[in-house]
């Protein structure tokens, strides 16, 4: 059965590009565009991996990650965080919050696909 990836991202064109790329890789891809209700959506859909943008409307990716890690059963869910904020403090904060991998925008398609496969097979 194909593994599922949830894209939590508010830029529709990034969602389209990533959806195309990951679907082509044989993954089931869905998207959620708002910080509000995101944690509940993750609990309901239980994806195999989340690609999480740091800056989202209404709730940041960091808060979503923190809340997620506090929920039983989601402590080890692979989360790849994407951000245009590539500062060291952001990376450190994400690592402390329990991110699986941190990538800065702009990324290369090959790199993100490789990282997603690595996280899914870990």
């Amino acid at each position: 059965m194909a593994k599922s990836v949830l894209l939590v991202e508010d830029e529709p064109f990034i969602i389209e590009a990533l959806s195309f790329l990951l679907t082509r890789e044989g993954l089931n891809v869905s998207a959620f565009m708002d910080g509000d209700g995101c944690v509940e959506h993750i609990q309901k859909t239980n994806p195999d991996l989340i690609v999480l943008d740091m800056m989202l409307p209404n709730k940041s990716g960091m808060q979503i990650l923190e809340e997620l890690r506090a929920i039983e059963g989601f402590a080890d869910l692979p989360v790849l965080m994407l951000t245009a904020k590539g500062q060291k403090k952001d990376r450190t904060a994400a690592e402390e919050a329990g991110v699986s991998l941190f990538m800065t925008k702009p990324f290369s398609n090959k790199e993100i696909i490789r990282n997603i496969h690595t996280l899914l097979s870990a």
Partner: peptide
């Protein structure tokens, strides 16, 4: 503005790579 520009560039880069590679 810098954040938005990086997001714009990400979309452009990723989309252009798809068009170019496939």
């Amino acid at each position: 503005a810098m954040h938005l520009m990086l997001s714009n560039i990400t979309t452009i880069k990723s989309t252009a790579e798809i068009l170019s590679d496939d």
